[in-house]
Design a protein around this nucleic acid. Structure first.
Length: 472
RNA sequence: GUGGUUGUAGCUCAGUUGGUUAGAGCGUCGGUUUGUGGUACCGAAAGUCGUGGGUUCGAGCCCCAUCUUCCACCCCA
């Protein structure tokens, strides 16, 4: 039987761990530079904490944990609900609400826990649960794995790391400004030039829906608009008409079709278009504040771009929406995302606490850096010196010296077996260990060591003191 | 969840229209060299051809199912 790991999971080699640690440390250092503090939460939560927070699609992707116990034993046995039979021949939508409740109750009996789906909802739970210990505004960061029962593909895994930074308890738009700076800082330090930070505002999307007179058509509208540079204005309008958006409505939002990437002009066009919508106008003002502040402060390597088709996280974002795309030419989805949610803790009973945050997708950033060859050669942890093992007496003599070296902080090890010289040298060579110490009866007699430099091939005899001095 | 794709030695891959005993390179181990690595030469071990069924005198190759890989859609990091 060949051993293997579950679909969508990965093993990491020493080199990969070193590279991942490098990325994580860069992100964590930036987080702390911006004043965030770390927290951690459990890898699994109660199902009730997670279910219903990510929309219907999200619920499907949550990994549920089976309760302990054997449901077929007499004493633990659970009867299948009657509506289960009906479900075999009907879709969920055909069931009566009473039957759905019965099914949910059954699910709760067999599964009450689920793996963390993201870091934002557990954070909201944390804030509500610890509200009396927290000083607001609370700035926390969190770097932990999350799990999704998704089908794997390029840059998509079932277990992956998110690196989140969020602020709760402040409605200040300076937070949005700082998060853009934070993105810029991290990607600049990673050498990932020319990332694009796309920004939108939920209030603008609501405003557009108001102007076209159809709140429920907003998704269809943005999806169609998103295709503008691929299929052209004419086909986009055709698609909108086919989705039931009137041509009068399309006329009202004509400026959207002539966006040219200049943020100021785009903002002006949006403002003009949304004058009749109070909420839309508010959104434009918010966006303008962020854009103007950033253009005053400047960015190192990223560019900030208004993108009205950005409609991610529509379920919970209420203000700014962020998404970071990889440098042009790299085929990869977003490597980061985030936004403002005015009432996230509301679902856990704590009203009127505004939050805003961003996330870095570690695994995708890894893939992008790898594709662009941006990993610096990370030094793998390895000993500086290896002692050849000739037998019990020699090994003991070596271990005494090794203890001294380790006290001095010199990474050193003894080859564990008295194997053939060739094998031992080969091992040192493969691991690219810089020095080898050879001790036989002769060296023991003279109380000395033979030190060999594996790069130059030179070797000489020396005392313990000289050994330490050379290796330090 | 929908559609496509992949699986042969530890790794990367050959394997003809279905036909004896499934090959190579790299790696591993041993030897040339019992206190000296990288190079060279010689040799060896290693595979239930993803798994389970089926067709056939005969299947790595054809059919079905299933798992896995990768990719697109949806959605997302």
């Amino acid at each position: 039987m060949k051993p293997s790991i579950p679909k969508g999971t990965r093993d990491f080699s020493p080199t990969e761990v070193a590279n991942r640690t490098y990325i994580i440390n860069t992100i964590k250092t930036a987080f702390e530079t911006f004043g965030f503090q770390p927290i951690e939460t459990p890898s699994f939560e109660k199902s009730s904490t997670l279910m219903g927070k990510y929309g219907e699609e999200g619920d499907r992707l949550i990994f549920k944990i089976l309760n302990s116990g054997n449901f077929f034993y007499e004493k633990d046995s659970i009867d299948l609900p009657e509506s289960y039979e009906k479900l075999k021949f009907n879709s969920l939508d055909d069931l009566e609400s009473k039957e759905k409740i019965e099914l949910n109750r059954f699910t709760n009996r067999i599964s009450g826990k689920a793996l963390r789906y993201d870091l934002t909802v557990p954070f909201a739970r944390y804030v509500v649960q610890h509200q009396n210990e927290i000083t607001f505004p609370f700035k926390r960061y969190q770097v932990q794995p999350v799990w999704r029962a998704d089908r794997p593909q390029k840059g998509r895994f079932r277990e992956f790391y998110q690196c989140d930074a969020d602020v709760v308890g402040s409605k200040s738009l300076w937070q949005e400004v700082e998060f853009i700076q934070l993105y810029d800082t991290v990607f600049t330090q990673l050498g990932l030039a020319e990332t694009t930070i796309k920004i939108n505002n939920r209030k603008i999307l609501s405003g557009i829906a108001e102007v076209i007179g159809a709140q429920d058509k907003l998704i269809d509208f943005t999806v169609a608009l998103d295709k503008l540079d691929k299929i052209g204005q004419e086909k986009v309008e055709t698609e909108m008409l086919s989705k039931g958006i009137t041509s009068a409505a399309i006329q009202k939002v004509q400026p959207l079709f002539s966006f040219d990437g200049n943020n100021q002009e785009n903002l002006d066009a949006l403002a003009k278009m949304l004058t009749t919508s109070e909420e839309g106008t508010k959104g434009v003002e918010e966006l303008r504040f962020v854009i103007n502040s950033i253009s005053e402060l400047g960015l190192q390597s990223a560019s900030l771009e208004v993108d009205v088709t950005l409609a991610r996280g529509l379920n919970y974002y209420t203000g700014a929406i962020f998404e970071v795309s990889a440098p042009k030419g790299v085929k990869m989805g977003s490597i980061g995302g985030g936004g403002r949610y005015d009432d996230l803790t509301g679902i856990f009973g704590m009203k009127d606490v505004s939050g805003v945050g961003i996330s870095f997708g570690l695994d995708r950033i890894y893939l992008v850096l790898e594709e662009l060859g941006l990993f610096k050669t990370v030094a793998l942890p390895k000993p500086k010196v290896m002692f050849v093992n000739f037998g019990e007496n020699e090994a003991l003599y070596c271990m005494k010296a090794i203890s001294q070296l380790r006290v001095k902080g010199i990474k050193s090890e003894l080859f564990p077996d008295a194997a053939k010289m060739k094998k031992q040298m080969n091992y040192a060579n493969k691991r690219e260990i810089e020095f080898v110490v050879i001790v036989g009866s002769q060296e023991i007699e003279n109380d000395e060591f033979t030190l060999k430099n594996m790069v130059s091939g030179e070797q000489s005899k020396c005392s313990l003191l000289e050994l330490i001095q050379t290796l330090l």
